[in-house]
Amino acid sequence: MFEVVSNEILAENLHKMVLVAPRIARARKAGQFVIVRLDQGEERIPLTIGDADQAAGTITLFIQAIGASTRKIVATPAGGFIRDVAGPLGKETHITNWGRVVCVGGGVGTAVLFPLVKALAEAGNEITTIIGGRSEKYVILADELGALSKNLIITTEDGSQGYKGFVTGPLSEMLADPERVPQAVFAVGPVPMMKAVANITREPGIETIVSLNPIMIDGTGMCGGCRVQVGNQTKFACVDGPEFDAHLVDFDGLSDRLTSYRKEEAARHAAEGCKLAKEVAK
């Protein structure tokens, strides 16, 4: 059992949860994830480790509550318990001093980006962080990321904060400016965003790394559910990733595989909704 130390809401459906997990806190490196199972009968859900405090023996998870299972996980209050937390899994991010680095985060991907920005800053990189959200209320961790970055750029689709438009707008401007062009780009967010970033950094040949979150069960290299086409090879995100060279990832294939259980999940969503309605009616 893993105790929940704190659970705060950062934005709509986005929680920051701190858990007691001393072994994981000690072993984890930037870029790695855990598998979380709330209770008996629940799903195994992969979640990026956002941060860790070795002295306190805690890890921080940023959880976007979009499915039935993640909504149940974020409903666990401080003082409550999560039955299973296993990790750290996946390879750590290859951190070096590139010089100028752009870190791009979209939606909950911004939270996944946080440990990378922290590690890149510690390695002496000059970081520009670009955060994208649908509107102001989906822009998260701006202060925390701003403190680690030389520049912080915010984009919103409706223009309610920062640039109006997508993260690719300011990134394109930087790529076109010889004074500001980065040596490496990290991008974490929805698959279409990562694909768009990869497309604009491909031609100038800028090293671009993305962190993928495919369908996964055990996360330990056993089931093969998380396979992704990278170049002409099939890779397993849990042991070979979750970070890959963005210019080699088959984003369309990844996107498509992520929809495998859309029908089943909609049915479960509906069933959970009914159950909730019945309980409320009682």
């Binding site: 072994r23 994981i24 072993a27 299973d84 296993a86 990790g87 750290p88 330990t220």
Partner: peptide, 9 residues
């Protein structure tokens, strides 16, 4: 359970 040798320890 939940201890992955090679990762957790």
């Amino acid at each position: 359970c939940n201890v992955i040798i090679g990762k957790t320890l």
